[in-house]
Design a protein around this nucleic acid. Structure first.
Lengths: 256, 256
DNA sequence: AACATCTTATTTCTACAGAATTGACAACGA
DNA sequence: TCGTTGTCAATTCTGTAGAAATAAGATGTT
């Protein structure tokens, strides 16, 4: 029996390898171990994961479907170049969908969960030491919880799935462009985010769908504004030695 | 040199096969040759396309990424069951995004193209014989042109790509549920659609983004309302055992 | 540059190991 | 007797590995 070791130490059996590799590679994109523009060579990955190149190839096809890499016929896979424009565009779409989800979720959400979120957000805002690494961690966790709660309560599974895909893309893009520049985890921004989150949660608690959607829109807008300042510099220097060529369309991949 | 023959008679060389197979299978889903719930067997497909099962597998992975089939580990691929709920959910998302695209496109669009569309829509509405098969054809063509024009002019490539993906899904769902029931190509509905299209185009010509988005929203809403009536009946009876057996003695018996 | 050749990497094929399902058949209970 | 249930071998299909085919890029020569 063959098993493969993944980033998280788990191993997987036959029939689960592709998925395991997909997740592992995603994690590597998030952490910046795989950089934008980088050429992924199937043979190398195969050796690294201790499998043949077949499941690697399949994982790459799946990743292209998510939109994290580009597949060029006969020339392999590239971690997607991310321009500020890409991030802006993804965020515009995300904003529209998050707002819709917020409107739909309003009034159908678990109030206890919302109250708990509100409480934790307030506690976090009141806490003295914002440079505590745990502050960052908690802020991110709360962000995830809020967005997941909204998506899960919007009553539209397809919408929820789309949002989780966009979140994934957004995270990948953001983290790739950040890998070089840790200083960006800027505390003022995080506190601002908390306040935005709180505004959303309070509108949701009040059952005011319009206000909640407005707050959500504002929240994402200010995020875009913030990130887009940091992105162009990070994406510029990546040289692409491959000749530019058209057929960007893989199976389900986004064309850009 | 190996080439494979596709549904449309084209053939493709190495490096384009997966894409070709994806498109071919998509077309078969559209036309109802592949029905919801049907089990896709890689070997059969491989023989049918005259390739080994490797590129077939890859195509199936890509199709799963698009959302047209489900992939069950160690148990192959199923053409997705489509419930009325699925269609509703996809349409909700599509409505939100189409409206956003409409708002963004408003004022940046090619006025000549819009005028031309308006003219053709009016001509179509005025034409006497609505049961002419060409009426249907033209109505659909104009629908495509309008939505493509909006998507292409919205200034957000990612949004445009998302819309084209949703359109694909929507078409797949609609056509699968229709394959049995041709009578659904109902002329009154088509004429109504034309009027909705005309309203959108006129608002766009007037540069009234709000009105255009509202018309677009109305257009998609009325579409959903219409389709969702026809879908439950079509999706209910498609239960079948996972495995479809070939007649042992006669190799000529086509698998449907 | 233009061309021929070499090298590397991708794509496809073939073969086989492991899952899942079928179908036969026996044991059991009504 | 009939129908149900459980077991097991046979079959079919999926998933992976490894080899073969071929395309793209690199190198070297003129």
């Amino acid at each position: 029996m063959t098993r493969i070791a993944m980033h998280n130490g788990q191993s997987f059996d036959r029939g689960q390898r592709r998925q395991a590799i997909v997740e592992s590679l995603l994690a590597e994109v998030f952490t910046g171990q795989l950089r934008a523009g980088q050429h992924l060579v199937t043979q190398d990955l195969a050796e690294r994961f201790g499998v043949s190149h077949t499941p690697i190839r399949e994982a790459l096809i799946a990743l292209a479907g998510v939109g994290v890499i580009d597949l060029l016929p006969n020339r392999g896979a590239l971690v997607r170049q991310v321009t500020a424009k890409d991030v802006r565009e993804v965020c515009q779409v995300r904003r529209v969908l998050e707002c819709e989800a917020t409107r739909r979720a309003c009034g159908r959400m678990d109030l206890e969960e919302l109250e708990a979120l509100a409480g934790e957000l307030k506690a976090l805002l009141g806490s003295a030491d914002r440079s505590d690494p745990r502050f960052i961690e908690q802020a991110r966790a709360l962000d995830s919880r809020l967005h997941d709660l909204v998506a899960g309560s919007c009553g539209n599974d397809f919408l929820a799935a789309e949002l989780s895909r966009l979140k994934l893309l957004f995270r990948a893009f953001r983290d790739v462009s950040w890998a070089y520049d840790k200083a960006r985890s800027d505390y003022r921004r995080l506190a601002g985010e908390c306040r935005e989150h709180l505004a959303i949660v309070e509108a949701l608690l009040a059952g005011d769908a319009k206000a909640a959607a407005r707050s959500m829109s504002q929240h994402i807008r200010s995020g875009v504004k913030y990130w887009s300042r940091s992105i162009p510099a990070a994406t510029a220097p990546v040289v692409r030695s491959l000749r530019e060529r058209k057929p960007a369309s893989n199976g389900g991949g986004k064309q850009r």
